[in-house]
Write a protein that binds this DNA or RNA. Structure first.
Lengths: 194, 194
DNA sequence: ACCTGAACACCGTTCAAGT
DNA sequence: ACCTGAACACCGTTCAAGT
């Protein structure tokens, strides 16, 4: 019985496909860091020395590419929320997580906008990928609310929107970066119970 | 002495030029309402039944076009700030103005981003046009601060950024529109003195 | 003085042809 | 099974040629 390739669904990908995928992701990481989340897909394929169709084969949509780029980050942030939930007091756990979230969002310009888009389009791969992260921070929020440190009239989506809005500010006007922590603190004050 | 055209600087524009400019503005208002501030300039020229070069002649840049579209709004908002300064108590004047600002920003998707861009690029026509408006709201802020109703550690640029960030949220995720007033109130709470 | 549209250099997306 | 790049339909911007 010769090793028939057998096109089973979960077959190991061909070597060249695997290599191309990795090249694309590595290049995409650089180009998105340079140009933001609306970077030129053509440019990414070019710099990865790969046909444009190859990029589309591996990542049928821009969101799919971003998802692969950001999955690590989402997983890390979700895990971080769990750690904080058991290691820190409710309010401090929440604010620490939010601070790290906003800090990390600075990595890619346009990221905040891409994240907010997932609120509307639940079907996007990006939406699915950050869902567990949002659920995790939701639990942090509820804990802080139960402890009476955060007003009860906001939900995780409100919090997500506020965090992204803060990220967006420095996205658009880098000169306001030095004020970001300050505005962040101001919004936190707004979260206090009435 | 025949009526020599005399190319004086401030000559009345030719009739066709005047007409084209008005057509472009009228169409731009519609198209930007449909597509947002990054609307297709080609589409605007096409629907105005005007050559593409004509659009560029009248509005050398996208920002110049937006500026003409928004000048009224800026002037109105600046005047409104003056009215409120004399008619309403300091804090109420400020919050009323901010509410109207955010409410009005909903007119064009992408407007918040265009506004924030003026913080970095002081040379843009949009920046010049909204400068007096920003100065006016700056005075409202200072009054509210002097009355002890708003924390002293924020300036007009911070406030401008926060207002645009709130506008941006519903820009990106229209489904959050019903939460906007709520998030607005939350940020206002954050403005209270410590 | 002003208008026009072709020309140029870019996009995103698809898909027939290759290996 | 996967890769490739031409093809298509769009952009923004410029500018020679017209009236």
């Amino acid at each position: 019985m010769p090793e028939t390739p057998a096109p089973t669904a979960d077959r190991a990908p061909r070597a060249d496909a695997r290599r191309n995928r990795e090249r694309l992701l590595a290049v995409a990481r650089v180009v998105v860091a340079e140009q933001g989340t609306d970077a030129s897909l053509r440019d990414i394929a070019r710099r990865a020395e790969v046909g444009l169709g190859t990029l589309y084969r591996h990542f049928p949509t821009r969101e799919a590419l971003l998802e692969s780029l950001l999955r690590d980050r989402f997983d890390t942030l979700a895990a971080r929320a769990e750690t904080l939930a058991s290691d820190a007091p409710p309010y401090e756990a929440l604010t620490t997580w939010l601070r790290e979230f906003v800090e990390g969002a600075r990595a890619y310009r346009g990221l905040a906008a891409s994240m907010m888009a997932t609120v509307n389009d639940e079907t996007s791969p990006l939406s699915a990928s950050c869902h567990t992260m949002r659920a995790a921070v939701g639990r942090l929020l509820e804990r802080a609310q139960a402890a009476g440190r955060v007003r009860a009239d906001i939900d995780r989506t409100d919090l997500f929107a506020l965090a992204n809005a803060l990220s967006w500010i420095t996205d658009q006007a880098p000169s306001l970066e030095e004020r970001r922590d300050h505005l962040f603190a101001l919004v936190l004050d707004g979260l206090a119970p009435r």
